[in-house]
Design a protein around this nucleic acid. Structure first.
Lengths: 340, 340
DNA sequence: AATAGATGTGAGATCGATCTCACATCGTCT
DNA sequence: AGACGATGTGAGATCGATCTCACATCTATT
């Protein structure tokens, strides 16, 4: 036999009052007699009444849910952020809807549309594309709070939380150059992705500053998964004159590169030096330990959620841009080189 | 200026028809004249009409959202599962709400309640506790589809997807015993958690079969995070007579153990042998590579989502129990021992 | 020609909670 | 005594989409 959840009407009937009074008693607003209030409470308890958030949301226009559209929750970077957002959302009585764009603009757009029609209260998005973002501008136009993380979208004027990608990448590549490397590979994500662009631009800036001509053959593009990165690394290092050092733009790719090197019998740092963007759990357990550019992952989700909830509670200041520093953590995966 | 999303009423007004007709045209049911239908379509387009899923859900009783309550999305195991569920849900036009129980029963209960009041269509839950599950039984009583993953809850008769935890653990420990180990440590999660119980019971069964008396000092309990596992490992191996081998019940704990061993100057497999439950990306990159019990993670989320959507599409068969095998993957983290 | 059926449309109820408004019934103050 | 404010309650509108029902037309069939 199927029990149906109790409605306010049921509670009101049981307590012998009108729906209006029942609502007043349960939400404690307006005038309600003590005795009546208790009768209603008792009735609600007895029926196991838990309002219908759908109806409430329809009435007041907003569903206490935060939408979160990320690249891929399997990336520990995003997983951490999603987790932190969920924790803060929970504290504020909100739930979290998660969608993976899988770095597809079309998917991001359709996800966003489907969430928008849920009258969700606000969004935290890591936009796939830096340029095509009419959908995000649409949010702003409808006054739906939006916080961008990890990436920027042109023409979308809203809060965002970033890290210093370009600086981090430049530091890494400068370090490789200082260690004598001239053929520095770049294992990067799709160029539509903001972080990928910025990190590449840091890479290029460092090369340019050292007077090293850019070389397309030094650059390999891959989706951000371990498996794809393995392939991309193999492609890169199967050339006649492969790089002597590699910079990878995220931790999954770093791990992919490591696995690829192992399978190719390439030893780090003897044959190839490696620096990865974004630290990871086992970076210190590999032998050698992996030198990385670290970003304060644990801050990003929290900062974004805080910005979003500030907006939700009515704060109406101009958009804030939070930018975290990145840090080069030198470990053992880079060796000195003295060729050309 | 704030644009409000267009409603059906707006569309109807613009097309000069009634709401009923507009609805018919947009959802193509009932009789609508060709010309009228086109007028409505045009009006909808012009206004950028996208129904209000809240109102639709209120009307027909269900919101096309799947709720997913896991231990912690930061665990790659759960992240993978969440990802796979999200993909399948998206294909079916559903969104995914994610909540972390953080292995707290109270949080699981309150999350579930808050999601239930959203009239969500179905749930996939990795229950924190094997015993206290009135909340889950409540779902069943209200006929809300529920699929349990990774764990079982007593008295809750519904679809579930598990792996052979006990068998996997036993295989691991039997292997350690066969390699001459008698003092085998267990780094496990909270005993309320089903997988932890089962894996422990596999551990105990293997010891018993070999005539080795269980020893509480060989067991350390930790939350399933890298950090906690580091501490727990250090505690375990700071004893006067520490284990000669360690079995860890999940990959985060395995990684924690690795980091702990490094910090304590304990070398694997020379000083201590190690087997972890659940494979992980870099298990083959460490030196030595880590021997693990692997489970088909990529199957679990998909299987669970499939079961759930079968229910949602009305399938009314008795609950299915899917159980995947686990496999011992021997790599290099176990060495032969010939003491007592 | 009459009637059954097909086709097309609108009015209004419904989902569940909330909120405004109107209407009581008190007590208290001049 | 009259009046005003405080207190308590209910009827009904509202949020947006859907669906039933009733009412038109129009076609085809006997």
């Amino acid at each position: 036999m199927v029990r149906k959840p109790a409605t306010l009407k049921d509670v009101a009937a049981l307590a012998n009052v009108s729906r209006a009074t029942a609502a007043r008693a349960l939400n404690s607003y307006g005038y309600v007699g003590d005795e009546t209030a208790q009768k209603v409470q008792a009735a609600a308890e007895q029926l196991g009444y838990r309002g219908n958030r759908l109806a409430q949301a329809l009435r007041n226009g907003q569903l206490p849910i935060v939408g979160c559209i990320l690249g891929d929750i399997q990336n520990p970077f995003f997983a951490r952020i999603a987790h932190d957002i969920e924790v803060l959302a929970r504290e504020r009585g909100h739930n979290l809807v998660i969608g993976s764009s899988e770095e597809e603009l079309a998917q991001e757009i359709s996800l966003l549309a489907s969430l928008q029609s849920l009258s969700i209260r606000g969004f935290i998005v890591a936009p796939t594309s830096a340029d095509n973002n009419a959908h995000l501008q649409g949010l702003i136009a409808e006054n739906v709070p939006l916080v961008l993380i990890d990436r920027v979208a042109e023409g979308v004027d809203c809060d965002n939380v970033l890290v210093d990608n370009e600086g981090g990448a430049r530091k890494a590549v400068e370090y490789l150059i200082a260690m004598g490397h001239r053929h520095i590979g770049l294992l990067q994500d799709d160029m539509r992705i903001f972080t990928s662009r910025e990190r590449m631009s840091g890479y290029q800036a460092a090369l340019a500053a050292a007077g090293i001509a850019p070389d397309d053959r030094m650059v390999s593009v891959s989706q951000s998964t371990v498996e794809h990165a393995v392939d991309a690394t193999i492609r890169l290092f199967s050339q006649k004159s492969p790089p002597t050092a590699l910079f990878t733009v995220d931790s999954l790719m770093t791990q992919g590169a490591l696995l690829a090197f192992r399978s190719m019998g390439i030893s780090i740092p003897h044959d190839v030096s490696l620096i990865g963007f974004d630290d990871f759990n086992l970076a210190t357990f590999t032998d050698p330990q992996i030198t990385v550019v670290s970003q304060p992952v644990s801050e990003i989700g929290r900062a974004a959620a805080r910005l979003l909830f500030d907006r939700l509670s009515g704060k109406n200041e101009p958009p804030q841009k939070i930018r975290f520093e990145t840090k080069l953590i030198v470990r053992g995966s880079v060796s000195r080189r003295s060729d050309g």
